[in-house]
Nucleic acid binder design. Structure first.
Lengths: 342, 342
DNA sequence: TACGACTCTGGGAGCGCTCTCAGAAGGAGC
DNA sequence: GCTCCTTCTGAGAGCGCTCCCAGAGTCGTA
């Protein structure tokens, strides 16, 4: 960072105190809520603050309070999926809103590459932020462990893989229960050869959804389980492979909406009717995906923005000491949204 | 923000100095680069830093240096388009990368609503960041003026509307030149009734593209100019209206890819062939949009991530005093990417 | 009227760091 | 061997704020 251009030096507490004819301590009290100060003085100080355009110096304040009023959001996804998977957009929006409500700032930390974890750890340990929010990613990711080892309280979005480090609080939706809802719906429609387009095996959300699929279809034919990676392309490809292998399939539960959209593309290309020939259910209820599918996608809805907000609330409780790491995680419920595709 | 949980108190400069058997000043010098310190002492200090796990206290440092190593990114879009329009994603990615290279942090400020500008202004004046990056939005937006009035050097992404406040440096692509490229290409293809699906009139990028369109088609029939708002839906709608009004149209230049994608949808629904009956050109070369259109979209490419990086570089130069507000703006060039749609 | 019990206010220390400035150490030149 | 210059180092002040603690002021009660 370059030098700061010499900004006009702003008024200090001292100046306000002089103007109002009181001491620094009194001004400080007023600025921080005014408890225990006579109303007349409060007014006088407020006036002086107004006239001088006083704004507290944040660095000085946090030097003594050891609080920063800022929370880091750590994004460790490989670049291509970051925001294009609208998941993050919504989650970050919820986080941003809730942080604003708590009068805290959002500092975005973006992992630039595999060698970049050190920078993140250093930043967290540097005492810039009061807490951190991170997204649980791949089970082989070093990040959760690194973060947990840092001195900064952290809440995860998505359940971290078991064994990826010490217990950390997280917010996640009921992936397994949601998957059960989806598959039961297909069963209720009378479908009998229900396939699952699974998400990547190193993410707990994908694994939980597979587990939910098996909860309902205990004896599911392994041939009906196809591997994808949460991208639209992988959904299209997995669907194609599935059709080649098992042309008799009559329903598909995709692990997310993007893969479901890919599957729909393949089905359309092959002239297979949805839902008449094959019913399709997604997961997420991603507005920007669901809006454009043909036919409209039946899917499992999770409240992603709400989860973002919950992450912040949970973090605040941890910072307050009102919640502790191991026991405080939050699981949100899902609901099936019925549209045309199933 | 709640109280910070009592973190284990971290070692200070003092502690490192004691450990290494030198003074605080010497440790400070070493930590900040080690210039003018004998190698033997440098090694000794480095060792002590390592052993104690010393990390400088940021608040204390910026209290005296008046630098923060942080830059605010201000996002003032109405929520729905924020990241879903991948424009922001790419721009923010470029910004993030370049800030990392400059060892600066990204603080994300998100305008939550019309009444929220005060909070942003207060934050900027609060001296948390060295500079700010903002996106030029609607000409009636109060934000640019507010930001310009704050004490924080700011660079805009996109040319701010004239009269929206004092001159500020900005980074933008050559919207007008890009539009000319697009329209000339259509002319070169032999198209004669070339329509323009324009973006919102309160954004300079849309206006500049309209101007570029008119540069080439000086006598363009006003009926061929349709209004949209940069969304996919508006593109679909505008295309439909255009077809109703002027069924003889043989080419369309859309002000962005999203609108072009909407137009393609309408054309497909009506059974009109692209490019045989109507050629379509977009603007942006948004990967996530372009990837899925049918047929593949010919468009004007702008290097959005690069523009993000340039914004940071420009800001750094302003902070260095090497560039001043009025004269330093950067205009990047565009190029036509030929695919199937025109 | 006097005294104790509160309520307010201000002085002062100190958070951890940087940076100036003076003095110590080391080397060169005579 | 002594002086002068250069290179390093450390003492100390101070950034702007909070918060502890002591003292001043106010009020009610005996």
């Amino acid at each position: 960072m370059p030098e700061q251009t010499a900004g006009s030096s702003r008024p200090t507490l001292e100046a306000v105190a002089a103007r109002a004819g009181v001491s620094r301590a009194t001004v400080s009290r007023v600025v921080n809520g005014g408890a225990g100060v006579r109303q007349a003085l409060v007014d006088k100080v407020r006036e002086a603050v107004e006239e001088l355009g006083y704004v507290p110096n944040h660095a000085a304040r946090s030097l003594v309070t050891r609080r920063h009023g800022a929370v880091a959001v750590i994004i460790a996804e490989p670049e291509f999926r970051i925001f294009s998977d609208p998941f993050f957009e919504q989650q970050v929006r919820g986080i941003s809103r809730e942080l604003t409500a708590h009068d805290a700032q959002l500092v975005l930390l973006w992992v630039e590459g595999p060698g970049d974890h050190g920078r993140i750890a250093r930043y967290l340990d540097g005492g810039h932020v009061d807490g951190a929010l991170a997204f649980s990613l791949h089970s082989d990711d070093r990040l959760p462990a690194l973060i947990a080892r840092s001195s900064v309280p952290t809440v995860f979005g998505g359940r971290p893989a078991v064994g990826s480090g010490p217990a950390v609080p997280y917010v996640d939706c009921d992936n397994r229960g949601g998957a059960r809802q989806a598959v039961r719906h297909l069963v209720d429609l009378g479908r009998r050869r229900i396939a699952h387009l699974a998400g990547p095996r190193d993410q707990t959300s994908a694994l939980d959804r597979i587990a939910g699929y098996h909860d309902v279809l205990v004896d599911a034919d392994p041939e009906l389980l196809c591997q994808g990676d949460f991208t639209r392309e992988s959904g299209a490809r997995a669907m194609a492979e599935l059709l080649d292998r098992r042309p008799d399939v009559d329903a598909v539960f995709a692990s997310n909406d993007l893969m479901a959209a890919g599957a729909l593309r393949t089905l359309r290309e092959r002239g297979i009717r949805v839902p008449e020939d094959i019913a399709v259910v997604g997961f997420d209820d991603m507005d920007s995906v669901v809006r454009d599918t043909e036919p409209a996608l039946t899917t499992v809805r999770q409240d992603i923005e709400g989860m973002g907000r919950l992450m912040v609330r949970l973090l605040m409780r941890v910072l307050d000491g009102a919640a502790d790491a191991a026991s405080a995680s939050v699981i949100t419920s899902t609901s099936l949204v019925r549209r045309a595709s199933a």
